[in-house]
Simulated assay, not measured.
Amino acid sequence: MLKLIIGNKAYSSWSLRGWLAVKQSGLAFEEITVPMFDETWNARTHGDEFAPSGGKVPILWDDQTVIWDSLAIVEWLSDKCGRDRFWPKDEAARGMARSMAAEMHSSYPNLRRDLGMNVRKTFPPRDLSDEVKQEILRIFELWAQARARHGAGGPYLFGSFSAADIMFAPVATRFVTYSVPLPRFAAAYVDTILSHPWMREWIQAAQDEPWVIEQYELEDS
């Protein structure tokens, strides 16, 4: 059986991506949640299970094979379970979906810094920096292009739920947490993502976590 080690569901955007990827695989897995940055975090991250990733989550163990980094987990499971389970069948759509997933993986540092994930909170609207606004507009642009070109088959970016949606799912939660104004098409997509049964399962589990990271609980964090 697969074993997935993740951080707090309230705060860990990368863990959410890895968890959604394993759910999408359809494979049985053991889920281990470890509270981030508590008094045992440093010691735990130097243990054998964490060492390959340098102490980062998520980490997927497939028997003796270890895969860390959310996009690597997506690709590993895609190879294992079939590409069509994670990526659009159409070649043009697949190329765009892979590019969007890679851009989400490597970009948007200002949004990540200023709008940390917290699925237990909803803050009032705030003044956003120009850099964050530009990154949000870029995300809207990508979502609009994907929906217009390849989204006719369903409500997700490329019609059916795919790795592209997995990569952008934490962004959808951030837009709700920080009351970011959304154009109609983006609001519809965010509602679609947050209504997915797996997202509801994750967010509900986050409500029951006992751990709190103060820096993500403040309106001006």
Rank of each mutant, 00 (worst) to 15 (best):
G18S: 12
V176G: 12
F185N: 11
A93L: 01
M96G: 03
P170I: 04
R94G: 02
A206T: 00
N118R: 11
E103N: 10
M1G: 11
Y178K: 03
L194E: 00
S70M: 10
R126C: 12
H150W: 00
Y178V: 07
T177S: 10
I136Y: 06
P88F: 01
G55W: 07
D127Y: 09
A188W: 05
E209M: 03
D114E: 15
K89Q: 11
K9N: 10
T33M: 05
W143F: 10
D208H: 14
S78R: 03
A148P: 01
E209S: 02
D84E: 15
Y178S: 05
L16A: 12
R98D: 08
P155C: 00
V66R: 14
P88E: 02
S195K: 01
D69W: 03
Y216G: 08
W61S: 08
A169T: 09
V171I: 15
P155V: 01
A188D: 15
V212P: 05
M100P: 09
I73G: 05
L77R: 01
G54H: 03
C81K: 11
R112F: 03
S12G: 10
T40V: 07
M117D: 10
E131A: 15
N110V: 09
W61C: 06
W76T: 14
I67K: 06
Q64H: 14
Q145W: 04
M1A: 13
L71F: 10
A152M: 02
K89I: 07
I203Y: 04
F168W: 13
E214W: 08
T192P: 04
Q134S: 13
D79P: 04
I193G: 00
